[in-house]
Amino acid sequence: MLLIPCPWCGPRDEAEFHYGGQAHIAYPDNPAALSDEEWARYLFFRDNPKGPFAERWSHTAGCRRWFNVVRDTATNEIHAVYRVGEPRPVTA
């Protein structure tokens, strides 16, 4: 079980959260102008690194806020937690 530090509520059990996939995926400026392939790429293609990964989590059983986490996918170590709208912190 991960212990995830919600930027509002502090450390809480993973069971209180929902996972939201890769962070910082911008909605296309003009979706209608995209080809099917480009649209599919926006919808379905995500990074899958072994190592630090910026991802979204929602504290569904608590303050119900979405926020971002930099988690090492190999070790589950959480390097950073930051609120939506804040830039991804520089981590080792």
């Binding site: 509520c9 809480r12 069971a15 059983a61 608590g62 303050c63």
Partner: peptide
């Protein structure tokens, strides 16, 4: 106060 889970209930 805290919003959390008690015995898996919100």
């Amino acid at each position: 106060c805290a919003q959390t889970m008690l015995a898996r209930a919100n």
